[in-house]
Design a protein around this nucleic acid. Structure first.
Lengths: 195, 195
DNA sequence: CCTACCGATCGGTAGG
DNA sequence: CCTACCGATCGGTAGG
């Protein structure tokens, strides 16, 4: 009979992913060595390989979990019983006002997904496209007159603006997160709806 | 009397940087080996080290040249004798409708600058900040009533939208480059100026 | 779960 | 004696 999994197996998996995400976000996936991740979470390199078969598997698990959580959060915001404008604001807040933990993972998704081999990227890119589809659907509600072929391009313009905030915006600075969300939402909405 | 530098020294330098930029843009700086760059431009690895002391020097030279050319092009577009709105459109066109060569370098600037060590990043980050300053100055002309502390955040929102196009926009697709530029410019301008 | 390693491979450099 | 390279290989380190 195989030995039961340790009680704290899932906790340790999360701890490893948190340490790795912080390291990947700071120095990037290629420069983050398994040795460094191990030290950061008080484990041995061998222990890491007990939880993840390869370094790529670790990155994949991190990004898959993050993107699925992000999609679930977006779907919840978009499913609310409210006017499209209100749901748009909710979406922006979900996307920008993430926890520090989610922000680090989002940076890794933006910067380091490309270091997975193509076959491993495919399911993650499908999740990213689902985010774009959800946004495009919301834009259609906001501006029913917009040519359908332009919904995704506009969604991607918005995603670009939002993702880029990870490179320059610091929540502790002069602009409060709520204000940033409002300004981005208003800029985009007015631009989209202007006659 | 020292032997003169080979006549084609500058040509070879450019050929190396072009091959390296294409490779960096496709697979990223860390995975692009000096050996691969050498093969791509029909040179030996030793020849590369004759032109660039280290791999980092090669990346630095590529990005410094690109950012200085970009700034020069932006300054020319902004210096034109025309209304601010017209100069804004010129700026967007400069930034989006780059040559394939410049697009590859821009992708490298976005994705791989972080793999230089901190000290080497500093002068390049200063050039990037100059781009933001130039845009912020233009936004001030477009909307003199906007709080000065918001000029750079708005400039960065625009930069995000523009830079992100490198990840999804293909010039050969359904949307012509000129149309993309017009849509981005109008979206942002209307959003910025809406009452 | 650790130390001790391996097979492979890297950026950079030697002699000529 | 210089610069411009080449073929070969170094010391060190990575993931596993």
């Amino acid at each position: 009979m195989p030995r039961a999994r340790a009680d704290d197996y899932d906790d340790k998996t999360k701890a490893i992913l948190d340490s790795a995400a912080a390291l990947f976000a700071r120095i990037g996936y290629p420069d983050a060595k398994m040795q460094d991740i191990a030290k950061a979470c008080g484990a041995s390199k061998s222990m890491l390989y007990h939880y993840f078969e390869t370094k790529d598997d670790l990155l994949f698990a991190m990004l898959e979990e993050h993107l699925m959580l992000l999609i679930a959060a977006i779907e919840q915001a978009l499913g609310a019983a409210a006017r499209p404008e209100e749901r748009f604001h909710r979406f922006i807040r979900i996307y920008v006002q993430k926890s520090a933990r989610a922000r680090r993972r989002h940076m890794v998704a933006i910067n380091d997904l490309r270091f997975l081999r193509k076959a491993r990227q495919v399911p993650l890119l499908a999740l990213e496209r689902k985010v774009v589809r959800l946004i495009a659907g919301l834009l259609r509600e906001l501006n029913p007159g917009l040519d359908a072929s332009l919904l995704k391009p506009y969604a991607l313009m918005l995603v670009g603006m939002l993702n880029w905030t990870e490179t320059w915006y610091r929540p502790g600075g002069a602009i409060k997160p709520q204000e940033l969300c409002d300004r981005i939402a208003r800029l985009f909405l007015r631009g989209l709806l202007a006659k």
